[in-house]
Simulated assay, not measured.
Amino acid sequence: MPTLTAKFYLASNPDKNSLPLNVHSFSISSFSMDVLGILYSGTLIDSLGYHYNLYTSPTSSPMYKVWRTTSGITAGRIKMQDKKHKAAAVTGNIGEVLIIPSLASTLGQPMNALAFHRIKAHNWQCPDYRVSFSPSELNSLWPSSPFISVPMSTSDFPLEVKSCLHEDNYYPIEALQQLYHYWKGCSSKSVEGYGIIARVNIRPVNSYIRFYIFVPNKKFKLELFKKIAYMKAGKKKVRGVTISNQQRITRAIGRLFY
């Protein structure tokens, strides 16, 4: 039975090497993943628990081998494929079904006690879920957060899930853009700036989820958020240190939130 770790961060401090506000470990069976995949995933993919075990197994397993009937030839950059790829759609769905049990376990609640539903939009990408938290639930997930004493204009949070099979840091820029589409598409000032990004790192050992919460401070402006979130990719030297645009964007975005 896999054991995963959920870690909770503020959008203003997204570095995974910093101390999270909360850490919680939980276990989930392959059968439970199968059932949750049937109930909550947005794409019809069967046996997600089986796929999780398969995708976290060593790539040296015979299952990954691509068989052939001839030795073939190499033509320029075209070579023979000898290993199977892991499908991004499967990885994404695995991450999506892990989110609800991880939040429920951290809160010490059954999953059906959480207020959530999947969402979708026509002709543009939006986050995967909309979840609703009471102030006490927010304080349980992100304890001692600076926004706890601040009046909020909504209790609903769009939640975007991004899964990957490697180590990384911060949160994916594409997830920021999906939050922007949600805020813009809702046409309501009350929801602007509120959201959650869940980064799911699926690994052979010790898979983990990083939850980043976005609660706007007085510097937040939607069009400024858009300008930063859509900065071009690349690298730049800052005080003699080369940093990626992802670092620059997350630092700049962080100034707009608690």
Rank of each mutant, 00 (worst) to 15 (best):
F8M: 06
P158V: 04
M111V: 05
G42T: 10
M63N: 10
W67E: 15
L54C: 02
W142D: 05
I253P: 03
S136D: 14
P127K: 12
S134Q: 13
S140P: 00
G42E: 13
L98V: 01
L39D: 11
R239N: 13
S207A: 04
L4F: 15
Q178L: 01
Y52F: 15
R255I: 01
I94S: 08
E223L: 08
D46H: 06
C126E: 04
S18P: 00
L222V: 10
T56I: 09
S244R: 08
V215S: 08
P135Y: 12
F220V: 05
S144Q: 13
Y9D: 02
P143I: 04
D46C: 00
K219A: 12
K237C: 02
L179G: 03
Q246R: 15
S149F: 01
S61C: 06
P127I: 05
N17V: 02
N17S: 13
R68A: 13
T56N: 05
H181Q: 11
W124D: 10
M111D: 03
A104P: 05
A104Y: 10
P127E: 13
N53P: 00
R68I: 02
A198S: 14
N245P: 00
S155G: 03
N169C: 02
C164P: 00
L179R: 06
S132N: 13
Y180I: 03
K86L: 15
L165F: 07
D156H: 11
W142F: 15
